[in-house]
Computed example of a mutant assay.
Amino acid sequence: MYSRKLRFPAIISVLLLSMLLMSGCEKQQTMAQFVKISGTVEARTKPTDKFVPAAQQSFLPAGGAVRTMSESGADLLLAESKGIIEIKADTYFELPQSGSNVRQESGTIIYRINQDKGGFTIDTPHGVTGVLGTTFEISVGSDSTTVGVKEGKVSLTNRQGESRIVQAKEKLGIDASGMFSEKTVFDLKTDGFKYIKQNEKWVPAKE
């Protein structure tokens, strides 16, 4: 009799716990989907998780992150038809847990954002790029970030709050101190984002 009295409350507790876990999963909003993977690509669904091999067609929720290894890459389809991003080799990319401020810690990514789906920003160690609906590329190195625009325009802001607008067929770099490079012509197919520092200015390296 005593064991029967305990069994019913225990069942209720398990059911309540299951409902809480299910509601927590529903709150983990899906923000992107892997539509193409090549080489070694790893992902985690939240900051406390370990990185595991990413699977094609799998989903990446808010707070998730992707890292690609040498000679590897992945294409992510963004939620709400925002567009698609092409993550190149040796790159770390992270989705926000809330809001629309994604982070690119390193490497190179091509962003293809639909014209009417702008309004989010890309945070890098050296500055913030505001997306206005465009196709552009961001390359993050150890001491600089470079943005090249194929279509549309983006804004590039350093940590001191200074901003520059980068138009179509232009590229602009920014270093760790917040100094902007000179604007030069950008070609998405051939540009290598090669900059060197001369006389305290970042200028394009000559091939």
Rank of each mutant, 00 (worst) to 15 (best):
A54N: 02
G133C: 06
L20M: 13
S139C: 01
G107F: 00
V140L: 03
P204A: 04
S3A: 11
A205H: 12
K46P: 09
A54R: 01
A65E: 10
G39D: 08
S177G: 07
L17F: 15
T190C: 06
Q97V: 11
M179G: 08
V131F: 07
F193V: 00
A65L: 05
D143W: 03
T124K: 02
D175L: 05
D187M: 04
I11Y: 08
F51I: 03
K5Y: 15
T184A: 10
K171D: 03
G118T: 07
D175V: 08
L188T: 11
A43S: 14
T135W: 03
K183M: 02
G148T: 03
T157P: 07
G127W: 06
R7M: 11
A32L: 00
E182A: 09
A65M: 10
D116A: 07
Q29R: 08
V66I: 15
E71D: 10
M22F: 13
R7T: 14
E86D: 15
D175H: 03
V203R: 02
M22L: 15
Q57Y: 10
V203H: 01
K5N: 14
P96M: 01
P96K: 00
I87L: 07
V35L: 07
E162M: 12
F180S: 01
K117A: 03
G133D: 06
Q28C: 09
L16T: 12
N158F: 07
V41H: 04
G73V: 05
A168R: 09
W202K: 10
Q29W: 08
L76D: 01
Q97R: 14
G63K: 04
G127D: 08
R67T: 07
R4G: 07
V166E: 05
K82C: 06
D175M: 05
V154W: 09
S106P: 04
L76Q: 00
A79H: 00
E26N: 11
V185H: 15
S3F: 13
E105R: 10
M1H: 14
A65S: 12
E105I: 13
Q160V: 05
A32E: 01
S58W: 04
T108A: 06
D191Y: 06
L132V: 08
E42V: 15
D90F: 09
F186N: 04
V149I: 09
E94F: 00
E182D: 07
A79K: 01
T157L: 09
I11H: 04
N199A: 14
F180C: 00
L15I: 15
S139G: 07
S155M: 05
E86W: 13
V140T: 05
I12Y: 09
